[in-house]
Structures are given as C-alpha cells and as structure tokens.
Design a protein around this nucleic acid. Sequence first.
DNA 1: AATGAATGAGCTTTCATTCAT
DNA 2: GATGAATGAAAGCTCATTCAT
Lengths: 197, 197, 197, 197
Amino acid sequence: MANDNKKRTIEMKKDTVLKAAIRLFAEKNYEATTMAEIAREANVSFGSVSIYFGNKEELFMACVVLPLEEFTKSLLDFDPSPNSYREEIQTFILKHFELFSTQKEYLRLLVQVIGQYERFSEAFKVVNEHNEKLNNKVSQLIVNGQQANQLADGDAEKIAIAYVSLLFGLRLSYADDPSLENWNQFAEIAMRLFGPK
Amino acid sequence: MANDNKKRTIEMKKDTVLKAAIRLFAEKNYEATTMAEIAREANVSFGSVSIYFGNKEELFMACVVLPLEEFTKSLLDFDPSPNSYREEIQTFILKHFELFSTQKEYLRLLVQVIGQYERFSEAFKVVNEHNEKLNNKVSQLIVNGQQANQLADGDAEKIAIAYVSLLFGLRLSYADDPSLENWNQFAEIAMRLFGPK
Amino acid sequence: MANDNKKRTIEMKKDTVLKAAIRLFAEKNYEATTMAEIAREANVSFGSVSIYFGNKEELFMACVVLPLEEFTKSLLDFDPSPNSYREEIQTFILKHFELFSTQKEYLRLLVQVIGQYERFSEAFKVVNEHNEKLNNKVSQLIVNGQQANQLADGDAEKIAIAYVSLLFGLRLSYADDPSLENWNQFAEIAMRLFGPK
Amino acid sequence: MANDNKKRTIEMKKDTVLKAAIRLFAEKNYEATTMAEIAREANVSFGSVSIYFGNKEELFMACVVLPLEEFTKSLLDFDPSPNSYREEIQTFILKHFELFSTQKEYLRLLVQVIGQYERFSEAFKVVNEHNEKLNNKVSQLIVNGQQANQLADGDAEKIAIAYVSLLFGLRLSYADDPSLENWNQFAEIAMRLFGPK
DNA sequence: AATGAATGAGCTTTCATTCAT
DNA sequence: GATGAATGAAAGCTCATTCAT
C-alpha cells in the first residue's frame, strides 16, 4: 500500500516533468530548452529528470511518443463506412479542429519533429507511422463515399493528404492561440476539399 | 573598377555565406547549426562571417529577411481583378506550388520562425507582415470574384488563410523531397477551397 | 542464536560487498568504480554499502587494509634462521609466487595505492608498514645466511628490496593472467638475486 | 616568418600542456585529474586544451604515446653483440637506471596504463609493443652472450622479462623520489639476474 | 580585410550521499 | 536494518565571440 502510494507519486511526478518538458520543448525547441529549466518548472531536481527519463534525447522522445497513442486514437475516432459520408466528415472535421486547437503545445512539438525530420529521425518515424494511419483511414472513407456516390470524384489519397496538411497548416497559421470559434469557421471551408455535393 | 571587382567579390562571398546559412539553419535549426559549420560550408573563416553579418542572431535574421522581399513578390504576382477569376486562381496556384516545391529550404526556415514565434519574435514580425500581404491580396481577389459572380460565397479572408495554410501544410507533409509533379496533383484539390463553379 | 544467524548473514553480506569492491576497484580503479556498481555486483542496495562501510573512501580503505593482515602473514611465513638458507629461500619464493599469481586482484589494488601514494596516503602508510616487515624479514634472513657462510656477500637490505620489487614487477608484467607455471619458471631467476653458491 | 613564430608558440604551448598533463595524470591518475586543472597548470584556458588535443582521452593517449618513441630509443641504445657481454649489460643497466630514476612521472603513467590495461587498452597496446622490443633486444643479447660462452645458461626470454620487471618494480618501490645513487646501488644486484660469471 | 587562436559561459550528465519510508 | 528516491556538486565539452596578427 505504502509502495503503491510511492509508485503513484512517482508516476505523478514523471507526468509533471513530461508536461513541463512538452511545454518548453514546444515553445522554445529542443536545444534552446535546458534540462535545468524543465526540472525547475516541474519542481524537481535535474537529477530526478535523468532518473525518470534518462537523458535529454530520451526525454524528448518520450514527449513525442507517449501522448501520440491517445492523440491518434482521437483522430481516428470516426466511421469509414457511415450512412451519410458528408455528415461523418463534418463531424470528424469538428472533432479534429477541436483537438488541434486544444492541443496546441503538443502539435508544436510534432511540427518541430516533422520540420526537422533528419535530426529527429527516430521520433519522426513513429510520428509518420501514426500520420499514415490517419491518411489511410480518411482516404478509405473517401473511396467508400465515392463508391456510394455520396462524394465527388478525385484522388482520394491526395485529398486526405491535403486535409491533414490543412490541419497542420492552420495550426501553424494560428500560432498565437486562436479561440475554438475561429477554427470552427474553417470547418465549412475544409469540407470543400472533399468536393461539392 | 578594381574596387568594383572587390565589392563584387565581397557581395558574392556574403551571398555564399547566406546560402550556406539558410541551408544549414533550415535543415538543422538555429541552435544546432554552428557558426564554424556555416563558415566551413561557405569556404570562409568564421571571422569573416562575423564581419559580414554580425553575430549569429543577426545572421539568422538576414537569412529570413533578405530573401523575403523577392519571395513575397513572386507570391503576389497575380492580378486581383482579372477577367476570369477561376483561371487566375488556377494560374497562381501553379505558380505558388512551384515556388513552394522549389524553395524547400527557405520554407523550412519560415516554418521554424512561425513555429517558434516567441523565440524569433523579430523575424516573425517581418514574416507575418509579408504573410498578411499575401492573405490580403488573395482575400481581395476572392471578394472581387464573388462580386463578379464568378466565385462561390464564403468568408473571403478565411478562405485565403485556409489556402495559405494548405501551402505550408503541404510543405510540411512533403518534408522529404517531393517532385514538382506531386504538387501539381494537388492543384485541383486546392482549387476546391475557392468553392464550386 | 537467531541473533547469531543474523550476524553471520550480515558478516557474509559485508564480505560479499568487500570482495566485489576489491574486484572492481582493482580492475577499473578508484574513481572509475561507482558505489552503485559495487552494490549491484554484491546484490545489495547501495544504501547498505554505506551502512556497512561508510563512504566510498572508507570502503576503499577497507578493501586495502582488511586483507592485508592475512596477506602479509602468508608472505612472512618463513624461518629467518633455517638450517639451509638456499632451500628456505627457494621455498618462500615458490610460496610468494603462488600468492602473487593467485591474488591478482588484490595486488592490482596494492599497485594502485603504491603508484598513487599521495592520493591514497593513508592506505599507503599501512601498506608500506607491512611491506617493510617483509623487507626486514627477508633482509634479516640474508644477513643470517651470509654470517652462516651460506649466502654470497652483498647489501642485504638492497637485495631484499630488489626481490620484492621483482615480485611486484612480474605482477605488473603479467598483467594479463599468467598461469602459475609461468611464474615458477622465474623461481630460478629470482634465486639469482640472492647471489651464487 | 610571422607564421613560423606563431607555429612555434603553439607548439611550445602544446608542449607545456602536455608536460602539465603528464605530471598531473601521473600523480593523481586519469579521472582524478580535471581538464581545468591541467589548463590552469599550463596557464591556458581549458578551451585551448581541447583545441590542442581534442578530448581528455585523446590528451591522455598523447601523454602516453608521444614520449614513448624517445623513451624506448634510450632504452634500446645498446649493442646486442658486443665484445664483452657483461660490460655491455653493466653499461645498459646504469643507463636504464638513470632513465628510470629521472623519468619518474612518465613511468608512473606507464605503470597506470599497464596496471589498468583493460581501461587503457589502446594505450596499453602501444606501450606493450614498445615493451616487447626491449624484451626482445635484451633477450637477443643474452642468447648471443650465452653462445659466446660469456653468460651463464638460463631461459633468455625469462631473464629479460625479469630484468624489465625489476626495473618497473624498483620504480614502484621507490615511489617517493630516490636519488640516483640509490638506484646505482642496485646495479650490481640487477647484474645477478644475468647469472654468475 | 581576413584569419583563426584563445577564451569562458553554459550546457548535459554522472554519481556520492542523504534520509524518509 | 534495508531500501532507493532525491539531490546537487562537479566534471567534460561545445561553441559564439573577441582580437592580435
């Protein structure tokens, strides 16, 4: 029991460190962020950070990879063979927009990894795999929708890529925090990528 | 005359340094790039780099700002009140795509500046101003097109932002060198943002 | 009784730690060896190591000093006034060689202490005292042997020092594990130090 | 010319650093010696030390290897086929003793390398090669002397090893600076290793 | 004008030690 | 008695910058 409490505390501390690291890495980037800063922000000694996550590189990797599973899960939470394709798209656009406007920091991290993919090749590889899953599922939905005569013609894969690119591009354009409403105003425009009725 | 030759040589050297700096800053990012590396790449001593551009920060600023004028000029090279709006859009999309697929390195630099706008606040300010010019001109064209009944309804400014976001997003998605053809395949899809006929 | 068992266990653990420490200190040297490594090697927590031996310096001291008593006892196990001096010398040479080839690790430790006597001044002092005992006893035997007309002339003390130096020198030369046989081949040569018949 | 002067100055500074490093490494050992200390001792910044020799490991390697050539040359400076073998041996013993009593610091370094040959495997390899040259040449001289009936029988190689071991062993025994006279008193004893007349 | 030797601030990382459990 | 989480001193190293040549 006492042991359990200890474990919980450690897990909580690790999480605090991770959150702080994500925030700082996102805002300032990998090398401009010092381990000491992260430790200070998380109210632990920098020795503890090393104990928790190994070295700086591993910590960065953890910042990128650990939240990725849940993040992608949210992104993939739609039905690729719905009754109404346009409605389903509309729905996931809103969901995605909410995610992208909410998870600002984590997304800055992803932009960094993608933007310097040579330097962060390992992290990039993992991110890319997840990204591809999203591309594939959106692509699949488009194909299905076209076969069901509910979506206009067009290269499904390219449309999917364009859609995901738009998501990241908007995140970049709205570097300074936009309110959720702003994003919603783009929903109708994003919809256009999938072709007219 | 002799003086002219010398000047030309210096200008040429400065340009070599700038090119090298852009390439390295883009690929590896600001702090991961060392002054020594840039100097080596440009075949000058690092003392010369300092003489030409001052310190590292000023060099980075130069890398971002100096090419910006010409870059934006290319982007703005379209008529906001053409006879055929859809044709004009089609044309500038192709031109923009060519620019974005050609200027890979410089765009990685811009992504960096935008992605860490707090850190590069000064550079960001300049970039943002230019960006706004593009947004405004595209926006203006859309408004004109709508008034001329050639373009579908929709918030012109938002459409412009979405369009520019798509440009940057694609640049990010195609981190690993895309051929120009690939980009052209997205032209039709990008067109969709401006609404159906 | 229960207490006795416990004590025995603690004594055994301490011994395990000491053995591990000697091995590691010998092989890698004082600063290159970490307390954590020693603890791991001995299957105890590093907290226990501190409890058993205090701090790192005290542990090292223990590694040097604790085996010294028995080690010297073995070295001194010969008769300084035997009937046949040459036979006695022959005998202790073999005994010493066996000790020096068997106790490789401990001797590396001693070499370290002697080699950096300023740094390990306290340990060195103790080692030196024991060393002197050996020198003195060998020296005494030589003097006796010379008086008994069984050994050739020569500065007895210097011969003793040379003999002990040869022991350590051979240990150094045969850094990579020598078999006992190799050592024995040096017995006849070592004998020469004590002069011809 | 100015360039030449500069080069000379740098070479001199490098030498100062090397000397300081040898002294400190010898006295305190590799890890107990800090780069800052070496730099301070040599009156340069620690940045310069890095420029001159790379990192700490490379500096240590340089300390071991650079003086080795000349050191071995001195050791090997004898004739393996002289007229009088005993005289030749007598002569090189005195020469070797002088070297070993003069080059105290460098020899402490060698003892360190040999004593922790696993840790300094690269340096050890080089040292060992040179050591073998000495062994071989001494060995050769003994064989020649035996064939010329001037030296007593006995395994020549083992005698050579014993002789070199005695040199190192004495260096170890006389950790605290001995005067040259002391060493000379051992000359006659060392001679005994090569057998009676 | 150009060079690159020299400097030292500032970073990451390791590890002995302490102490609450 | 035993553990191992936490700390932070201290080290090596990198690199922007200065400045004598």
